[in-house]
Nucleic acid binder design. Structure first.
Lengths: 129, 129
DNA sequence: TAAGGTATACGAATGTTTTCGTAAATAGAA
DNA sequence: TTCTATTTACGAAAACATTCGTATACCTTA
């Protein structure tokens, strides 16, 4: 039902997707146990959400064994990209550099990460000036 | 009602805040006309939202003239920072560098902006290594 | 095979956000 | 003053998201 290029998962959906992206295809039980560490909702709540996500085409359910195994149909990267673009628009009015400055300023960033970003900047400048 | 350090405006609220941050204190009429360019909702919808925001303490209403003039009680920067922190957590699992890389990669960034970011990286490294 | 534990199915309640219809108030023009 | 434009006030509908109770199906194992 959803091949939509700009689908925005709800908050609860995103939490579930994160668990699946991090751990690979999983049962409701597993996902729910992970989520339980940081929030409290009943098991059937998680189940229902994952079923809805499957209906929407966000997840695919492998029903061959009793405990269905769900996996995301959208990659973490493409979803991040989509959400980032939207976030950039709505919150930073499209100014990537402003977002970048704020992100780097408030978070700890290791030397390795800084170097990596420098490399990217060099590349960008090559194609830009 | 809301001095909350971590208040998250809804999407519709954020759109209104953007208009106010960009144009300064404004009437419902003005805000609504701006929003009308990109979305369609009735005038009373915008009015209602702004009234609710005033109740919540997100906006302040100057009622001295017939057409009330609203202004935001939270700055654009602090709101961006708050939303960014949250977004980083929920969407990028806290990895600022990953977010930065994706943001820079997909958007056009001018030479000036790139230099500005380089400067920041230099400063960060100073305090970091 | 009967009992207990665990799973899905389903529907509905709850909560939140967004939308709008309608009425009342207000100001300005005729 | 009276008519008309425009505004605010209010309540409730509609849309969306989240939560959970309960029924039912399915293994496992005693």
């Amino acid at each position: 039902m959803n091949q939509n290029q700009s689908y925005k998962p709800t908050e609860a959906e995103l939490e579930i997707l994160q668990v699946l992206w991090q751990n690979g295809p999983s049962t409701v039980r597993f996902v729910h146990d992970v989520l339980s560490e940081t929030k409290d909702a009943g098991y059937t709540t998680t189940l229902k959400l994952m079923q809805i996500m499957a209906e929407k085409g966000i997840l695919e359910a492998d029903k061959s064994s009793k405990s269905h195994v769900f996996k995301p149909l959208m990659s973490e990267e493409s979803t991040q990209q989509r959400l980032l673009d939207r976030f950039l628009d709505t919150t930073f009015r499209g100014s990537a550099s402003k977002l970048v400055m704020q992100a780097l300023g408030s978070q700890h960033t290791s030397k390795e990460e800084i170097d990596e970003i420098r490399n990217l900047l060099d590349k960008l400048e090559g194609g830009n000036k």
